[in-house]
Design a protein around this nucleic acid. Structure first.
Lengths: 214, 214
DNA sequence: CTTGCAGTGTAACTTATGTAACATTAGAAG
DNA sequence: CTTCTAATGTTACATAAGTTACACTGCAAG
């Protein structure tokens, strides 16, 4: 369980020990379902390794990406669900090989008073998730699809650490809540303007990708 | 301070007493600024009377409505800002005459361990705000403007308890992040289909307003 | 090899929404 | 009353995005 070391800077030693003792270590493979709609949440996940995609579906199963969780981040929506014994409003899927540690809901409360570092972590998580949701709203409400697509590619680049993004046009379309044809069209425009190169299931971001839009 | 009675069912008596003792009672008139961008938040507001509109602006000062806070509700984003000493990411404006009680940030922490009802209230608030933000995202991402406009009018109706909505087309356009002409167009369509009647600064929802769309 | 399919390219068209420009009207202020 | 301004109505047009349809291609399974 050496990935717990990543939390060393975040929590005090006694709390780390409790996390190791009571936390439930889990691994997921790419595509595995980490949380699903309508399920009761019994523990709050802290991601140790890999990336978890958190998204939302509407009535017609159209999805939209909310945000990604990466190392040492956690989903506060799960937290408030736990405490309130509510069903999940979001769906979470492993983007790659994911390791996480699940904190049982009985401990969430207990630690809140016992460990200041835990309370701070929880509050920071709440704040980060709020900001991510606000960014998401801002993006959808104020930005055109071409800008959103560029932001999406940059985020993928940041998370994977690679300039080669592995994704089909279809997947991207789903995550941005639009259709495949539209994404293909916009990607082709980006390729024609020399910012990316398209391959099958892969998009290579070129050096000029960070250049100002338009 | 008799509006505190509204919180009787929510908090235990000892906590109510502390709220009365340490809370800072404030009133706002229609249009008054309750929270602003970039300001440090020093207390968490609990709305006692009236409605507070919480919204967000982009770089170009285009606003978009996030949600409304009404009686006994509170803005959890303020909470996490307080605890983390972060600047506000949202703007809040009084919709009408508003009374609220501000809980100083030193008490937020203290009560979390001391009063279970406080912890539950805070967690419930977090959850409610998350759900509101998710609804907002869903609305913008998956629904056309006509549906969003109808939902907006219904929400206004629910909050005010009246079928006569007082708002200019311009205001509505701002809150839905679109332009006045578009709103006028859609409202006129609704009027032509017999669902509403338009007056100056007023919109009257008719009985058939709840009928299925289209 | 050949078969099949997911992934992609692309054209043609529809529709929702944004934008600019201008006329009209209601009500407030003087 | 007149004057001014915000609010509204309306037209005409531009553009982003959604939709349908179909062709083509790389690749994996048999």
């Amino acid at each position: 369980m050496n990935n717990l070391d990543k939390l060393k800077g975040v929590f005090e030693p006694e709390l780390l020990q409790e996390i190791e003792q009571f936390g439930i270590y889990q691994t997921f493979k790419e595509g595995d379902l980490v949380m699903d709609y309508g399920k009761y949440i019994r523990m709050m996940p802290i991601v140790l390794k890999g990336t978890v995609k958190v998204h939302r579906l509407d009535e017609n199963n159209n999805e939209i990406l909310l945000y990604y969780l990466s190392s040492s981040e956690s989903c506060s929506m799960a937290y408030s669900c736990c405490v309130e014994a509510k069903k999940s409003e979001v769906k979470a899927v492993a983007e790659d090989n994911v390791e996480l540690i699940g904190i049982p809901h009985v401990k969430l409360d207990e630690w809140l008073c016992k460990y200041p570092s835990w309370k701070n972590y929880v509050m920071r998580s709440f704040n980060e998730r709020f900001i991510e949701l606000l960014k998401s709203i801002e993006s959808i409400a104020f930005h055109k699809l071409d800008e959103r697509l560029i932001a999406y590619l940059k985020e993928k680049q940041r998370l994977s650490g690679s300039s080669v993004i592995k994704a089909s046009h279809n997947t991207i379309a789903d995550e941005l809540a639009t259709s495949r044809v539209v994404i293909s069209r916009l990607l082709k425009q980006l390729e024609n303007s020399g910012k990316i190169i398209l391959y099958r299931n892969e998009i290579k971001l070129l050096s000029g990708f960070d250049a100002p839009f338009k």
